[in-house]
Amino acid sequence: MPFAAHLRVAFRRHWPYYLAEAAGLACFVLCAGLLTVLLEHPASPLAPWLPAQPVARRALMGLGMALVIMGIVYSPWGKRSGAHINPAVTLAFWQLGKLRTSDAVWYVLAQLTGAIGAAQLLRGTMGHWYAHPAVNFTVTEPGPQGPLVAFWAEFGISFLLMVVLLVALHSRRLKRWTGVVMGLLLAVYIVVEAPYSGMSLNPARSLGTALAAGSYQGLWLYWVAPPLAMWLATVLFRYLYHGEDLECAVLAGCGPSPASPHTMGEEPPHYPTQHPE
């Protein structure tokens, strides 16, 4: 069957999953933009009560975004699609064989659509609030240390995130807490790493905000460092676990159980060998 036909079949079967991925990343970008306006814009209604120290405001941002990512991961739609909301995460699971190639293509396209659409919505509705230099369209750009430092900062946080994610999903005790662990790690990254690279981890998120801002400084590194780092994390995972497999590519954890949104006989896109196309 030609690959275009595989794409058509996959879309007919799994379009709700792709819609969930687009909506999940759109929600993430929207929440990041709104929180940044509230915490950083000098005319924000919260400005009189916010701490003057940037690190304290980043801590508030980190807490807010941790709750957002947990909400996405454990939402019914997030549990069904896997809540990757990141092309680098999707490519890592594809590399591990937990996602068909056709599904991976649609996932990435959906994530790009969600990120670009949300950033354009913020630009169109919030105007000068979103464009203010203190907010700057929430673009991710290299910090004063330069693009080389930003590259390795993105590489390091992406590698650690994927290693932690895979180890947690491999553990029967921890897999249900993967979303919580990811949220807490994201909060730490926002506080500690954001000054070096803007703390992206996500090529689609960076592209969406760059298009809204019309600014592409260092955009290449956000498309190279996270996917490369997460791919290497999958290589390390296979080496340490001697080829042992994951049950699925769902960040909330999975497996047949009363709490799982999937039952035996279903065809979620993260079981690539269950129903060959």
Results as ranks from 00 to 15, higher is better:
V164Y: 02
V108R: 03
G82K: 05
D245K: 13
M230K: 02
G214R: 12
S102R: 06
Q217Y: 12
W49C: 13
R8W: 13
P269S: 15
R12P: 05
C254R: 00
F237S: 02
M61I: 00
V180K: 07
V108A: 09
V55A: 15
Y222L: 04
T178S: 14
G255V: 01
L240I: 13
A118N: 09
P256F: 10
W77D: 00
D103G: 11
V163L: 14
M182P: 05
P256L: 10
P2S: 12
L207P: 01
L165R: 02
G208F: 01
E267Y: 11
R205I: 00
V139H: 03
N202F: 03
L91G: 02
A134C: 10
A194R: 05
Y17G: 08
E247R: 11
R57M: 07
L96C: 01
G24H: 04
A252K: 08
V139I: 14
W220Q: 08
E267D: 15
L109C: 12
N202K: 04
M230C: 11
Q217C: 00
E141C: 01
M264I: 14
L251N: 07
A26Q: 06
A187G: 10
L169A: 09
P16G: 08
R58M: 04
L91K: 03
E21N: 13
A92G: 01
T140M: 11
H132A: 06
Y189V: 09
